[in-house]
Design a protein around this nucleic acid. Structure first.
Lengths: 327, 327
DNA sequence: ACTGATCGATTATACGTATAAGCAGTTGAT
DNA sequence: ATCAACTGCTTATACGTATAATCGATCAGT
């Protein structure tokens, strides 16, 4: 038994398929009597009719999908709340947010698989939006291609900035204001996040020229080796809260006092930051745009009411220090 | 300019649309000359042809989508790796994994929005798979409806078990083996996870009848109030690693020694567990089934080669203690 | 040289929906 | 009384694809 179609509903209600469509979408220009309206709705409910998204997409020419191919799960409550808010805002405007894995495929191949769904918008990490990928998406009808977590404006697409340098500079300024002079920044060795680490380190250098760059894998051994150095810096930006915790543990084991001997700043302001002892000082980046505003902008781009030239910055983040005990 | 269709490719290659379809899908029963094959492929590449997933879905009757409507982001590297592996296994079999928010919609309304995409399979949390929801999905053509994180077999759908009681029992056994006699378990007050907390607490009771149930919100105040009690238990299962960290911090501030005065066990074995001081002992649940096996089973259900009756348990998790310093 | 069979393609059709266009029957204005 | 305008519906069509059915040409076997 196949799922009921609008034709089945029409037959059950004794009307034409067109009428069913008019009623269930209550289309603006449609003129249908109240009594007929009721009959159609009742029949649809009784049969358990569910519209066929593919058929609708084929007919209308667009799927109403907004694709969000994230290669890493955004951890933390913040990101999840953001996603929820975005989804609701999109739903209100008739879009459907779809999160979509696709880690393995690269460049244009990934873009091809996105394009098959004929989304109206694609929000992806800037790194994956290469020239051929963007061309492919555009030519397949995607209205808005938007880069996420960009460090700088993109020559290809409008971006949602996430200014790692500003984050690093913010942390460094706090350390300097605490009287620290020999600054350093941790740069993770993990592939994929290393480039963000470099950005944050550069931000530190902007405030404290010549700040040391400490390349560190996420392991207790490497952290212990760092902690046992005799020429430790007196102020450290640890890339994020997890690295901060790793390093602080190692420092603690090595008998180095935090923050007396070395002040440490994390990033992201995770839940654990407030639970550690000593409590972790952390920089966080708050979006200057609400999810609703962001979605509204995307909607305008999709509808062609707003230009979406490259170089445009849709939204920014403003870094802020949450001062606790480690710095 | 609209995206090129298979008709455009056909025109460019000087063949019929049917031939294009045969070539690009290399259909088993199709007989096309090698020279023509090449011409078609070349034309498709030159025009940047991307097949239209909706049109294909409409024609074939199924979308090849596997829907994964998760209401909470699965945090932690483990879950993300699992997702990646599942996605690749699905891709190899021609499916597409789509992650899909939909926090707000409840019951049948959520099911309706899933059904619109005509997925072949839906993997959702058991709580959301109510009777009407399952009926709706089934009648809209979904072949496999599978419940995730179930505590017990479902009367409606096959489930992927996540046995919270077993997890609690495992933690309790470890505490007992350490000589602890007055056990307690934290049950979070946060809505949505409270029921999992209750399951874990019940597991503790199975090993240590009469174990105390400690309802706790995630706040330092409540944790401090607990830590200042005079009648503290001597063994605590803290629900998960974050709660464990919260409680241990509070105990530390109150001058209670861990593990001497009170042994604490977390759950999930997060990265932070190994970084805390003292290092956190944690129970973790490892899947007994590889993602590939799970996907293979789903594939069999979809293709009708395997019955998918309710009560069937697709895969289990086996709990395991990672012993560190807090217990 | 006639008949099947095989090869390499084409033609035709249906999937489920949205919407433009059309068409009776009724109402309102002059 | 006549015609236009409106109401409440139906008919017809196209979206892009997969695939069954068909068809001309070449070829092997008697």
């Amino acid at each position: 038994m196949k799922p009921p179609t609008s034709v089945d509903v029409a037959r059950a209600a004794g009307v034409s398929q067109a009428t069913v469509s008019y009623v269930l979408n209550d289309s603006p220009g449609a003129r249908v009597g109240d009594e007929t309206r009721e009959r159609v709705k009742e029949a649809a409910a009784r049969l358990g009719y569910v519209p066929h998204a593919s058929a609708r997409a084929l007919r209308t020419g667009h799927s109403g999908l907004v694709l969000l191919p994230l290669s890493q799960a955004r951890t933390g409550r913040l990101a999840q709340n953001l996603l929820d808010a975005m989804e609701e805002a999109l739903r209100e405007r008739g879009y459907t947010l779809v999160q979509y894995g696709e880690r393995r495929l690269k460049g244009a191949a990934a873009a091809r698989s996105w394009a098959e769904l004929r989304p109206v918008a694609v929000l992806a990490e800037v790194d994956r939006l290469t020239r051929p990928a963007v061309d492919l998406l555009k030519s397949s009808g995607v209205k808005a291609v938007i880069g996420l977590s960009a460090e700088r404006p993109s020559p290809l697409v409008p971006v949602l900035m996430y200014d790692h340098e500003a984050l690093g500079a913010c942390a460094a300024e706090h350390l300097v204001s605490r009287g620290r002079t020999r600054l350093a920044a941790v740069v993770p060795r993990e592939r994929g996040i290393d480039r963000m680490g470099v950005g944050r380190w550069r931000g530190v250098c902007r405030v404290a020229p010549g700040a040391e760059r400490i390349d560190l894998a996420f392991s207790e051994e490497e952290a212990a080796r760092f902690a046992s150095r005799t020429d430790l810096p007196d102020g450290l930006f640890a890339y994020n809260d997890e690295y901060a915790m790793l390093v602080i543990s190692a420092l603690h084991d090595a008998g180095v006092r935090v923050p007396e001997d070395i002040a440490v700043v994390g990033a992201d302001d995770l839940v654990i930051a407030g639970l550690m002892r000593p409590r972790l000082t952390s920089v966080r980046a708050d979006s200057t745009t609400t999810p609703g505003e962001l979605i509204a902008m995307i909607d305008e781009i999709v509808r062609g009411e707003r230009a979406a030239g490259p170089g445009v910055v849709l939204s920014g983040y403003v870094p802020r220090v949450v001062v606790r005990e480690t710095a």
